[in-house]
Amino acid sequence: MPENSVPKAPLPWWAAGLLLGIVQILAVGLSGPLGVSTQFVVVEGVALNKVAPSYVEQHTLLQSEKYQKIGYGFWLDVGIVLGAFLAAVLAGRWRPRATTYWWRVSHGPTVGKRLLAGFIGGFLILMGARFAHGCTSGQFASGWAQLSLSVVPFTVSLFLFGMITALLAYPRTPNIDA
């Protein structure tokens, strides 16, 4: 039954990879490599500057121009939200939901626990991304594109901890449409 198994992605892997690779080339050619996580700090830096300018003034990071400027990187994040919304609607994939197939098969219909795990995970994701100077976009994908030295330890650490955590958090495997 299709409702009980992980559906296929709209595009096959090679077309999906090609499309995302071309977006990366466009980004590098026109403005700068893809990146997402910096802007979470920028938005809060700009907001903090409005409510507590004296704190921002003496803050080593927030006082720098990069963290006080709403520019290309910010609009890229807004674009992700708009593009994802449109693509999901047009591909018939927009659907309100709060859990996943992998979560359900390991933890049952525990939506509250899924949301709590999501919140804790989100906290670790952004904290980690900023410690690492970038996330799966800015550090991983763009790091490999530019052959940066930092991408090697980042990739090993990201996937090692990602795989161990996924094994512990999702011990059971759902049906997967091939």
Binding site: L34, V36, S37, F40, D77, I80, V81, L82, G83, A84, F85, A88, R93, W94, R95, T100, W102, A117, G118, I120, G121, G122, F123, L124, I125, L126, M127, G128, A129, R130, F131, A132, H133, C135, T136, S137, Q139, S150, P153, F154, T155, V156, S157, L158, F159, L160, F161, G162, M163, I164, T165, A166, L167, L168, A169
Partner: peptide, 28 residues
């Protein structure tokens, strides 16, 4: 970079999201 990759990896393995796909999935 290694420490950050580990924290991000734990969040990634717990949720299946990263910053870009988290935004995209919220929009979906």
């Amino acid at each position: 970079v290694t420490l950050g990759g580990a924290l991000l990896g734990i969040g990634f393995g717990l949720t299946g999201y990263c910053p870009g796909t988290g935004l995209a999935c919220a929009a979906a």
